[in-house]
Design a protein around this nucleic acid. Sequence first.
DNA 1: AATCAATAAAGAAATTTTTCTTTAATAAAA
DNA 2: TTTTATTAAAGAAAAATTTCTTTATTGATT
Lengths: 217, 217
Amino acid sequence: MVQYSKKIQAVPEPTIRRMPSYLAFAEGLLRKGQQFVSSTQIANYMNIDPTQVTKDLSYTTIVGKTRVGYEVKAIVDVLSEFLGFSVMDNAFLVGAGSLGSALLHDSGLNHFGLKIEAAFDINPSTIGRKINDVEVFHIDQFRDLAQELNVIMGIITVPAENAQTVADLMVAWGIKAIWNFTPARIKVPDDIIVQNTTLYSNLAIIFNKLHQDKREE
Amino acid sequence: MVQYSKKIQAVPEPTIRRMPSYLAFAEGLLRKGQQFVSSTQIANYMNIDPTQVTKDLSYTTIVGKTRVGYEVKAIVDVLSEFLGFSVMDNAFLVGAGSLGSALLHDSGLNHFGLKIEAAFDINPSTIGRKINDVEVFHIDQFRDLAQELNVIMGIITVPAENAQTVADLMVAWGIKAIWNFTPARIKVPDDIIVQNTTLYSNLAIIFNKLHQDKREE
DNA sequence: AATCAATAAAGAAATTTTTCTTTAATAAAA
DNA sequence: TTTTATTAAAGAAAAATTTCTTTATTGATT
Ligand SMILES: NC(=O)c1ccc[n+]([C@@H]2O[C@H](COP(=O)([O-])OP(=O)(O)OC[C@H]3O[C@@H](n4cnc5c(N)ncnc54)[C@H](O)[C@@H]3O)[C@@H](O)[C@H]2O)c1
Ligand SMILES: NC(=O)c1ccc[n+]([C@@H]2O[C@H](COP(=O)([O-])OP(=O)(O)OC[C@H]3O[C@@H](n4cnc5c(N)ncnc54)[C@H](O)[C@@H]3O)[C@@H](O)[C@H]2O)c1
């Protein structure tokens, strides 16, 4: 099959997954006043191979100094830029329940470039409330607001059975990416980016390792 | 290097990550009364290749019927057993803040075999409260309770800077696995299982795809 | 009854990701 | 000043994972 779309310097997904941790580690070192950090140190913190760190960083413009390591400040600056954390993107959150509220409270999202502009729900008792300064609107107001604000991402934290309905709404209102926290898989047009974040995968991995250990005894 | 520890029929981690979604899908079909499901259907739902589904399921005892597919009931039964979701494991949660409370409210954990027996905090205003029927104790009471109840997993949802302290406690009290929701990486003995669940990795992936799209235009 | 089409299963091939190896640089120690 | 040890970087090799190919089965269609 002929591939027409030029794949521009694709960075491996595992690499991108690790990068936010490198960044967080470097930010900590910066606060402590450390000027340089070696791949060995980072690898030790992450519990991975040092060459993995070097490879990962080689996808960016960061260059290290032999026998010294990488400049901490450079890692922080380049990585936040590289990961898109240094420009603020706007999002809407639909489903201001337990998980939705937790996300609204999480300052980490703000720190890493995501601003939740507004939340939506259908439950009259939540509508009108403010959660960590973010107002909760009725879902029907979604459209009007999306036009005013430059919102590119929709966060879904409704019960799984309503995920598709909400996704359809989001697509209709012109959102470019959807962050789906429900275990349900949603169907959207090809040009919409979907990121599923399912806790239960992690649970499965823990159980698997636990039981494997048991079997080895 | 000589490898002494026998690796028994290691199931690929990506496979285990996908399995909870297969299970959830099958559970939905079961509720709707559907008796058989093909790899094509599952793959379509998951947005992956059908042979991937077949491969994944081949790690279990499930066998499909040509031209028919897999028995939905069998997928549900075998997969929940295989993933360790059908026996209840006990956990403690430390840090009953925004995220901690959300997890305490999440019935999905219960459904997939994890029972949070108790929560711990240091904030006097949360201690003594009950969140979704789970009592919040002072962290100092951790030890006494761990002995009484058969708790194998510790869930960390405190601020990142306190993650290591909490992890050390958990190890001291004999916990076997730690589910770490903070961005900090913790250091524990080799025989302790650690699962890091960091939201910001997912955020990085979304941003990367968004910006890649922008560059391709 | 014969043909067709959809599917599971197994293995091969391709791709992706990680780990290993080599080289060169350079700070620290002798 | 010379040696040693540590490190980044680049490329090769290995390992893991996904996708492709082939085969056999069997329900549905003709
Ligand atoms: N709570 C957790 O820690 C947790 C963890 C992992 C995954 N999840 C998943 O996140 C999702 C939400 O979980 P939760 O615990 O926050 O549930 P929840 O019931 O606390 O919150 C869901 C919210 O969505 C609102 N809602 C329902 N339908 C809606 C619609 N059509 N439009 C707008 N709002 C709507 C409800 O009014 C409610 O406020 C679930 O799919 C769950 O599996 C939750
Ligand atoms: N809120 C979210 O949606 C979210 C999302 C992703 C990751 N996280 C991470 O989860 C962690 C917790 O976030 P949060 O938003 O729930 O914070 P939070 O401040 O709401 O809750 C933290 C809780 O931990 C308690 N605590 C602090 N030190 C403690 C200690 N030593 N022992 C016991 N309890 C202690 C606090 O009293 C508080 O109740 C953070 O690392 C955060 O980055 C949160």
